[in-house]
């Protein structure tokens, strides 16, 4: 009896959480006729891949925007790696009042809603354009730049770097390693999984950018897919679902690949905490 309720509960939870995704995937295999039907339907009448054909062969502007999304995400990822690792390293090693206050400020910034941080960005870009003559609006750089300096990465990595046993650090120091060498050869290999998890988080976050492109980009050719899908829903609903699935695909794929590493990381954190 208990086993049955457990199974039922599991099934219930699974269905509730996966349902929207399944819905989207199943709709991507419907053809245009069924999509015009405004009722809520779950199973496609005829299983066909016409949507995918249309989106890849005929309406493949979508892929140009896909590249846009990829560029923006990759840009932020790269930048964040460089910037956040350094900052987290600093915070984990340096334990002074100043660094604590600084970290508090960083946490504070992390929690700010995007709209608030966007305002200073916009003002900054405006003055740069006016005084330096550089055109920042409507470029993808304008979107990447704030993302690179987002403090989430610093927060996350600092926690993890701190959980590294102090002994590693001291041994390396005794061996005469410089700070840079310690960072590259001790801290980073240790926190491979955490960095991978952070990458995943940043990837998810930036793949899904919505607020910044609306403000910073004006021409449709530079938009990421996340915005495009919204316009697609009203204009070309036939390929909306295929586009949604293709858009979800990299994130889910990366997630599935990393999930094993995540499991290891979870266990490691639990081990350390004990």
């Amino acid at each position: 009896m208990k086993k049955f309720t457990v199974k039922l509960l599991s099934a219930f939870i699974i269905i509730v959480f996966i349902f929207p995704i399944l819905y989207t995937i199943s709709h991507s295999f419907m053809d245009g006729y069924q999509l015009k039907n405004n009722e809520v339907e779950i199973v496609p009448e005829i299983f066909n891949i016409q949507q995918y054909y249309e989106i890849s062969v005929e309406k493949n502007e979508y892929f140009k925007l896909y590249i846009n999304s990829a560029i923006m995400t990759a840009g932020v990822l790269l930048g964040q790696m460089i910037v956040s690792i350094g900052a987290a390293y600093y915070f984990s090693v340096k334990k002074s009042r100043y660094s604590e206050v600084l970290f508090l400020i960083y946490t504070f910034f992390m929690l700010l809603p995007l709209q608030i941080t966007l305002i200073p960005n916009v003002l900054l870009y405006n003055s740069i354009e006016r005084y330096l003559g550089l055109r920042l609006f409507n470029t993808q750089f304008a979107v990447i730049l704030p993302g690179v300096f987002s403090t989430l990465g610093v927060f996350f990595l600092k926690q993890f770097f701190e959980s590294m046993p102090q002994s590693y650090y001291e041994i390396a120091k005794i061996d005469g390693a410089s700070d840079l060498e310690i960072l590259l050869h001790v801290v980073l290999p240790y926190s491979k999984n955490a960095i991978a998890a952070l990458c995943l988080l940043i990837f998810i976050e930036n793949w899904n950018l919505i607020e910044q492109p609306i403000i910073f980009l004006s021409s449709m050719s530079k938009m990421p897919v996340s915005i495009y899908l919204n316009t697609l829903y009203s204009s070309y609903r036939e390929i909306f679902y295929a586009g949604s699935v293709l858009f979800m695909f990299p994130v889910i794929y990366v997630f599935m690949k990393i999930r094993d590493k995540l499991k290891v990381m979870v266990l490691k954190i639990s081990d350390e905490g004990r």
């Binding site: 995918y52 989106i55 062969v57 140009k64 896909y66 293709l246 695909f249």
Partner: peptide, 13 residues
Amino acid sequence: FLSIVIIIGFVFL
């Protein structure tokens, strides 16, 4: 399948 669709999309683009 999805990867193939993406590749085809890029090619046609």
